[in-house]
Amino acid sequence: MNGAADMGGMMGFGPVQPEPEHVRFHAAWEKRVLAMTLAMGATGQWNIDQSRSARESLPPPQYLAKSYYEIWLAGLERLMAERGLVSAEEIEAGRVLAPPKQLPRILKAEAVPAVLAKGGPTERETTQPARFKIGDRVRAKNMHPAGHTRLPRYVRGHVGIVELLHGMHVFPDASARGEAEQPQWLYTVRFAARELWGEAADPTLSVSVDAWDSYLEAA
C-alpha cells in the first residue's frame, strides 16, 4: 500500500541526528518492546512479512507521529489482537480478561542463542531460470497494490540496470497475506539518480533496490 512507511524522497523531516555507538535505545521500555516482538515472533503465529505489514499499514498520521518502538508496539498489539491472543480490551485494561490460546511453540531463555543463530533465511530452491541477467535494462512497474509490497514508490515506472542476482526468495506481497511463499527471483536493480529525481539530481549518485521478478518488466 502507498503508506507512510515508504519514505524515500520525502522532505521536511530535518537533519539526521547522529549518536554514539553505544546508544541503542532512548527509553527502557523500548528494550522490552523489542524483546517481546522477537519472542512473540518466535511463536510462529505470523511471519516477518505479516509483522512488517502490521507496522507499515498503520494510518499515515499515526505512523508519522509515533517513535520507532511505538510503531513496533502498535504492530505487535495488532498482530496479537487479530489472532485472538490478546484482545484490544485486555490491552486497554492492562490485565488478562480471557483465557490464553494454546501456542505450539514458546521461546525459552535457553533456546534464544540457537533461534537467533538460525535466523529466517528467505532463499528457496531454484525452480526456474532467472528472467533477467546482470546488465539487462528493466523497468520497475508502475503498480500500486493495496496490500503489502516492497517496491518503493520512488522507483516505480523508472528504468534501471540489473546489478545482482540473489536466487529465488519468498515473495513478501503474498507472504504478508498469509499465502504460500511463492518464491520469485530476486534482483538488485541500479537506477541513476537523474532517472529517479530529474535533471537537478546529483550526477554522481545511483540508487539500488532489491526487487522481486514480478516487480519488473524488460525495458
Binding site: 524515500g8 533465511p121 528467505t122 516492497r150 517496491l151 518503493p152 540473489h166 526468495h169 519468498v170 513478501p172 530476486l186 538488485t188 541500479r190 546529483d202 554522481t204 549518485l205 545511483s206 540508487v207 539500488s208 533496490v209 532489491d210 526487487a211 522481486w212
Partner: peptide, 10 residues
C-alpha cells in the same frame, strides 16, 4: 555514490 536500499532480506 552508490546507495543501497535494503528492500528485501539481503
Amino acid at each position: 555514490i552508490k546507495l543501497w536500499d535494503s528492500t528485501a532480506e539481503v
